[in-house]
Design a binder for these strands. Structure first.
Lengths: 165, 165
DNA sequence: CAATTTCATATGACTGTGTCATGTGAACTA
DNA sequence: TAGTTCACATGACACAGTCATATGAAATTG
């Protein structure tokens, strides 16, 4: 997305955004932060929903992340493309990570939650990325993202419960 | 990387690459293909090494993918950023995917190899991506990529062997 | 050896994009 | 009414991707 395109869509000139943002990267960082925050809000609501098992809640959270990639690929790329050294970006990303951490802890227990949380977060991001880039073709692998998420959660639950410590 | 920078490094002018590549995207696609191919070669050699267990071989293959991300972040981004609709790119990517598939089959058995292969490939990509974007800070998660890879492989092996079908 | 074709590259021009200095008009304020 | 503020437009600059054209060296051909 070019700044001219942003301007055109908003009906203003190309230089107008520079009154509100220091440069293009700052504008993009703002978009990334908003996306992180909105997704964190969604997962937070979802985590408060008592109407399903911890497994199902975690699954829906992971699918929510993947859905952002499907619906807003550019925004999704910004989330993980924006350097994490911006404090506000790191904060909003951390909020989502903490939501995932809590959901994972409900599935695998508190010890090891960080461990499996990192794996779930990374795998979710990887599934989204593979699907986005077209490298997760159903024709090739005969599975879709939804089944992968299911398999992932089953695997870590089994691993965590079967081999404590 | 701009084409002018490519030219400067090669000691030629900015337009010189256009005698060899149709446009910038084609040049970058070529880089992506070379990276896919080189990694597939490396994993193929690794797979022929009889000196370690199937687990260890798969682990080293995943780490090889992550290592590309560490050493050549731009090339890594090109691999999964280049649209997979280019036939040659799809072919070279498919070669690496098949190497992974074979390695995974040695660990979890033939049935379910596609299933777990897709998960391993996606998770590996996700771990690499999280590390690259700085979202896998050891301070936050208290784990590094190496341990995540270990955990991932343990989890899918346990899952595949414990619950057949 | 001379003429010709081929080929990689240089050069200059055009477009599009990020950026900024400056100007302008409207809304708000004293 | 005059001054301040604020968002935006305008025009300019630099740079990147692209292409048409020119040049000069190497290879080929007679």
């Amino acid at each position: 997305m070019t700044l001219r395109a942003v301007g055109a869509r908003a009906g203003v000139s190309r230089g107008a955004p520079y009154g509100h943002f220091e440069n293009k990267e700052h504008l993009l960082t703002r978009l990334a932060i908003d996306t992180w925050t909105s997704l964190a809000d969604e997962v937070e609501r979802l985590r408060a929903d008592p109407g399903c098992t911890p497994d199902a809640r975690l699954e829906r959270a992971v699918l929510a992340l993947i859905e952002v990639g499907r619906r807003h690929p550019h925004r999704y790329a910004l989330m993980f493309g924006t350097p994490a050294d911006d404090p506000e970006a790191a904060g909003s990303a951390g909020r989502l990570e903490n939501e995932f951490l809590a959901l994972v802890a409900d599935v695998v227990g508190e010890p090891g939650a960080l461990h499996y949380g990192a794996l779930v977060m990374s795998s979710a991001h990887g599934i989204a990325g593979m699907e986005l880039s077209g490298h997760l073709s159903k024709e090739k692998w005969q599975v879709g993202s939804e089944e992968l998420v299911r398999t992932l959660i089953d695997a870590i639950r089994g691993q965590a419960n079967g081999l404590p410590g």
